[in-house]
Design a protein around this nucleic acid. Structure first.
Length: 796
DNA sequence: GAAACCCGCGGAACG
DNA sequence: CGCGGGTTTC
């Protein structure tokens, strides 16, 4: 059925022929090779809009998968601007976000508690360390980090302990740990990131009814950054299009968008080979290349094209532009890393000449890229001394900060007393007289009784036992007290009673931590608003958007999961039970750790690694430290594949620049406390001389001319590089409050009846419209949150 | 139980 | 060099 849409459809206007072809592809599996700056996101979002407006699919039939929350948000924002459609009806999110949503809805089938919590990498490592200590595993022979990497790797390959081949005794030991780790997580009701993917994959694979449902539901599946998918993610995608026996249920289409030349994450399990596999296994009939670049001048693109042509086994792609040559790519050789930084700052001050003057780039449009984080220090110092505001990407994100993790651990204990990881994190923080020995004894008792640490406390005796008893009593009391409070109030209460705030008040640099803790309460409040279950919110009038032709494809008689589901509160498919705001917020904290840039807002030069620059673009880009051993990095140079990935990384770096590109290197560099004499990167020999302009004479590059420099400057460097030039708090956008009459007719205090849970009393009501939820205290089943659009609640 | 001390190590990073 | 983690010391 070819949709009849006028060729002059506003959606298709100003698309080039390739983009247009991609947007209007027939509903079959297809691969789009999207070069850097070729309008990939635009094509993806326009494709979705096209499918919707031509009536080929309703919002509920769309699933769009990304890798980062940022990309998912951007897609939703752009789509919202393009179409009057409730984007929440679609499944747009990260792999892990969507798996989380899926597992919450089917938690019973997945054999998880509904409010299962998610371990981040830190939590995972500490759980593994604990396990190893308990089982007397030699940490010299089996470094915990390695075990963690091993377990994550197994899961990424879809392997449970029984599936892992064991050739050596060490393998056997590692698999044993993997097995123990799994059992522990299961007992505690927690999952790690890999588990989110693996568990939902297995459920889809093994449960024919569930699989059939989602295969029928998702007519169109779109995947961004396909070159970054790992084995498990590929298998997960495949299950929507094929049954395990290889048969293909009719009718759905997977659109994979990616760029093999920008594959830079092999080290974390990404498999470029998935692109070729996809073409073969999905019998892809349509492949489209987007090679028209709208970002950079041709000197920059020629450099990128020439460089990447040195890689073998590419799918093949050449960027082109209509923009003309532009300025040459400038190359600078510095005697030392310090001199490189100083030159860079000087050049930058010319570039960023105060607003209005030509060329005059805004500071935020200037980026400094480097291969490894350690390189930022010298540059930061130089910028700081020159008084140029800058912003460093990387480092701890908001929800990863120690004080925040502590607060979250208390909150998790409210939700799940058996969470031993959280228990151990805060049992003696702030210090309350519970030492290592006491904890050891407690762990022994718990192991003997086969119960959680929390439950083992009642069996302890003596002084230490009294301290422990006081700790769990406090947690239990707070849990009681918070039963009826808003999330913000819960957090404030926990901050008080845990003693965290008091503790940091007495610490010398605790002020910032206290600010962060306060920010946590605000973040929770805005989360509650955004997710649509604000405490006193009432239903909106019927949103005019929901009356648009686009969203009328929704069938009210479809099963629950075809209804719009907010991100963190997908209700249980049977009972309509949803997560408490607290459990939802904890999930949010694990899934979206927040921004990792040191500051935002004010106009500042951007400093980051090449990896984190992927997907971004700037008017002017400095790629620094282009030296053999650094970029390409020493550890990658052993094998050909490693070197090719470095080259792709360089390709990503070059293609970030719109107007001006600088490439620089230093003859000597202070690294790990010693001066190293470097040769300029081999990548210079792979660039077209015609596109380059050497600001310093191009030397023979034997690296010998460096002697005489680089002595002694280590001691004259300015200490104390400032990472927090413009300290930023966790982003906390205001949410407009709208009011109208509620439509469900329920009020606090009402007696209600639920088919599963029996009779109960309404405690509170939150949210609006389809997202409205009620907290009900059932006589026999305790307090539960129920989605009113789903739960069958009748007033008694 | 907390501060001082010492040792070893060093690639990139999303959920 | 600078950091984090573990250990010693008071």
């Amino acid at each position: 059925m070819s949709p009849e849409v006028p060729a002059e459809s506003p959606l298709l206007q100003s698309l080039n022929p390739e983009q247009r072809a991609a947007v209007t592809l027939p509903p079959e599996h297809a691969l789009i090779l999207a070069g850097a700056g070729s309008g990939k996101t635009r094509v993806l979002t326009t494709r979705i809009a096209w499918l919707l407006t031509t009536g080929q699919v309703s919002p509920g039939g769309i699933m769009a998968v990304t890798f980062t929350n940022k990309a998912a948000k951007e897609m939703m924002t752009r789509l919202g601007a393009m179409l009057p459609v409730n984007v929440r009806g679609m499944w747009i999110g990260t792999f892990h976000g969507l798996c989380n949503r899926f597992l919450r809805a089917h938690y019973k089938l997945a054999n998880l508690p509904q409010s299962f919590q998610i371990l981040d990498t830190q939590d995972q490592l500490s759980a593994i360390k604990r396990l190893m200590k308990q089982h007397g595993v030699d940490e010299e022979r089996f470094p915990p980090k390695e075990v963690q990497w091993f377990i994550a790797g197994c899961k990424e390959d879809g392997q449970r302990p029984k599936d892992v081949p064991t050739r050596t005794e060490e393998d056997r030991r590692r698999v044993e740990l993997y097995q123990l780790y799994e059992e522990r997580c299961q007992r505690e009701g927690v999952v790690d990131f890999g588990e989110l993917m693996l568990r939902s994959y297995e459920l889809l694979r093994d449960n024919d009814a569930v699989r059939a449902h989602y295969q029928r539901r998702f007519r169109h599946i779109l995947v961004d950054e396909f070159q970054d998918t790992n084995r498990l993610q590929y298998a997960w995608l495949k299950i929507f299009a094929f049954n395990p026996d290889g048969s293909a249920p009719a009718g759905n289409a997977v659109l994979a968008v990616g760029d093999d030349d920008q594959s830079i994450y092999a080290f974390r399990g990404a498999r470029v080979g998935n692109m070729q596999d996809f073409v073969r296994e999905f019998h892809v009939a349509h492949q489209i290349k987007l090679e028209q670049n709208y970002r950079s001048y041709s000197n920059i693109l020629d450099s990128a094209n020439a460089l990447i042509s040195h890689n073998k086994g590419r799918l093949g792609k050449n960027l082109r532009t209509d923009q003309g040559p532009g300025e040459p790519v400038r190359v600078y050789e510095a005697p030392t890393d310090l001199a490189e930084a100083q030159w860079l700052v000087e050049e930058m001050r010319h570039l960023a000449r105060d607003q209005g003057t030509e060329p005059g780039f805004a500071k935020r449009e200037i980026a400094v890229l480097y291969r490894s984080n350690a390189q930022s220090r010298v540059i930061e110092t130089a910028l700081f001394n020159a008084g140029v505001p800058y912003r460093v990407y990387g480092g701890l994100r908001f929800f990863e900060r120690a004080e925040i993790k502590h607060a979250l651990a208390y909150l998790r204990l409210l939700e799940n007393p058996n969470d031993d990881t959280s228990f151990l994190r805060v049992v003696n923080f702030p210090p309350r007289g519970i030492g290592a020995r006491t904890i050891e004894q407690l762990q022994d008792a718990a192991r003997a009784a086969g119960c959680s640490l929390h439950d083992a406390v009642s069996a302890t005796t003596g002084k230490a036992g009294a301290n422990l008893g006081a700790f769990v009593a406090k947690i239990d009391v707070v849990r009681e007290q918070t039963q009826d409070l808003s999330l913000r109030e819960i957090i404030e209460l926990v901050l008080q009673h845990s003693g965290l705030v008091d503790h940091y008040r007495s610490e010398k640099d605790g002020a910032e931590r206290i600010e962060n803790l306060e920010e946590l309460a605000s973040a929770a409040e805005s989360f509650v608003m955004q997710e649509g279950f604000g405490r006193d919110a009432v239903a909106l009038p019927i949103d005019e958007l929901s009356q648009s032709p686009v969203s009328q494809g929704l069938d009210p008689n479809q099963p629950i999961l075809d209804q719009p589901a907010p991100d963190y509160v997908a209700p249980d498919a049977e009972t309509g039970e949803t997560l408490s705001p607290l459990a939802a917020f904890l999930t949010h904290a694990a899934l979206e750790a927040g921004d990792n840039q040191a500051s935002a807002g004010q106009d500042a030069v951007q400093l980051m690694t090449v990896h984190s620059a992927k997907g971004l673009e700037f008017d002017a880009v400095f790629v620094t430290g282009l030296e053999e051993g650094l970029f390409p990095s020493e550890r990658s140079m052993a094998d050909y594949e490693g070197l090719e990935e470095e080259r792709r990384l360089m390709y990503v770096a070059i293609t970030r620049a719109r107007k001006r590109l600088y490439l620089s290197y230093a003859q000597t560099r202070l690294l790990h406390g010693q001066t190293r004499y470097n040769v300029r990167s081999r990548f210079f020999d792979e660039l077209p001389e015609a596109a380059l302009k050497w600001l310093t004479p191009k030397n023979q590059n034997f690296g010998g001319s460096a002697f005489g420099f680089g002595t002694g400057y280590g001691s004259t460097r300015s200490p104390g590089a400032q990472r927090d030039w413009n300290p930023d708090r966790f982003a906390n956008p205001p949410v407009p409050v709208q009011k109208a009459a509620p439509s469900h007719g329920l009020k606090s205090g009402m007696q209600v009846f639920h088919t599963k849970f029996g009779e109960g009393t309404v405690i509170s009501i939150e949210g609006q419209g389809d997202d409205a939820r009620a907290q009900v205290k059932f006589n026999r089943h305790g307090i539960k949150w129920l989605a009113l659009a789903v739960a069958k609640l009748t007033p008694v």
